[in-house]
Amino acid sequence: MIRVVIAEDQQMLRGALTSLLKLEDDIEVVADVSDGQAAWDAIQKYNPDVCLLDIEIPYITGLEIAKRLKSAGDKSKIIIVTTFARPGYLQKAIDAQVEGYLLKDEPIDYLIEAIRKVMNGEHVISSDLAATLFLKQNNPLTDRETEVLKLAKEGWTTRDIGKTLFLTNGTIRNYLSSAIQKLEVETRQQAIDKAREKGWI
């Protein structure tokens, strides 16, 4: 029996996935949860064979859970599901060594087969996602520019970011200005939106 934890914040989709997977004789859904913290707790409690994780669940993202599990040497197989065919996200998932990366609009039979395949040691990526690897753009932002944009994305002011990173307001503004130029946009918000769309923050 393949024991699965599902983490998906869209209740209708989570309910549908749970119901459909329960119909399979060789799959057992041991927990279905709506956020990353609940997913982490369920994984620690049930020690599942497969973790089916939405990439952008609240509190702890699916990718962050994947990184934690791999760092801890956990043997659970990880399948990331997403609505986003973004090269940056796919690259992050590959870097996190997940076993599967699927688009949510795949047929349920494809997902079920993916679960069985990763249990057999295979890797599964939606074909539409695999194509995005060839469109991958290198992230032009430095680590510090990325960090500053991430904090700005959370609604932090220049002053707040400066205090947190122990940098002057002028330095923070310089990082934001540099990021805006590199991303070829005109405002801080446009820089945040573009970096997020590319999967860089």
Rank of each mutant, 00 (worst) to 15 (best):
K67R: 15
S126P: 02
I65E: 01
G100P: 09
K67M: 12
A93G: 15
I94K: 14
Y89K: 08
V50R: 08
L90C: 06
A39E: 04
I57T: 15
I79N: 10
E56Q: 15
Y59I: 13
H123D: 12
V50Q: 10
V81S: 12
A42Y: 08
L103A: 11
S126T: 11
D74L: 00
N47C: 10
H123T: 14
L53T: 09
Y59D: 13
A38L: 12
I94L: 15
Y89F: 14
G100I: 07
I115C: 02
I60W: 01
V81H: 15
R86I: 06
I115Y: 01
D95K: 13
D109L: 11
A93I: 03
M119E: 05
I112H: 02
L102S: 12
S76G: 11
N120I: 00
R116F: 01
A39T: 04
K75H: 08
A72G: 09
G100C: 10
A39F: 02
V98Y: 06
Y46T: 12
T132P: 00
A131H: 10
G88F: 01
I94A: 11
V98T: 05
D128M: 13
A131R: 13
V50I: 13
I60C: 03
L90H: 09
A66Q: 03
I55L: 15
S127M: 07
I43N: 07
L69N: 02
I79L: 07
Y110E: 14
Y59M: 03
E113N: 15
G62E: 05
A114M: 01
A96M: 02
L111K: 05
T61Y: 04
D41K: 12
K104G: 06
Y101D: 11
I65C: 08
L102K: 08
K104F: 04
Y110W: 00
E106W: 00
D95H: 07
A72N: 12
T83M: 15
I78F: 01
Y46G: 04
N120S: 14
K70N: 05
P107A: 04
P48N: 07
I60K: 09
E64M: 04
L52K: 06
E106I: 14
I65T: 03
D95T: 10
Y101V: 10
D109K: 14
A114D: 03
Q44V: 06
C51K: 06
G121D: 02
F84A: 14
L69W: 00
S71G: 12
A130H: 08
A131L: 14
D95I: 05
I108T: 08
Q91N: 11
A131D: 13
A85P: 01
K70Q: 03
G62S: 06
V98I: 08
A130P: 00
P87Y: 03
D109V: 13
A85W: 00
E64R: 11
K92W: 00
K75T: 14
I108V: 14
L53G: 09
N120M: 04
E122L: 09
D95P: 01
V124N: 06
G100A: 14
K67T: 11
G62L: 07
C51F: 06
I60F: 02
L52S: 12
L111T: 05
L129S: 07
L53W: 04
L102N: 09
V81F: 14
G73A: 06
A85E: 13
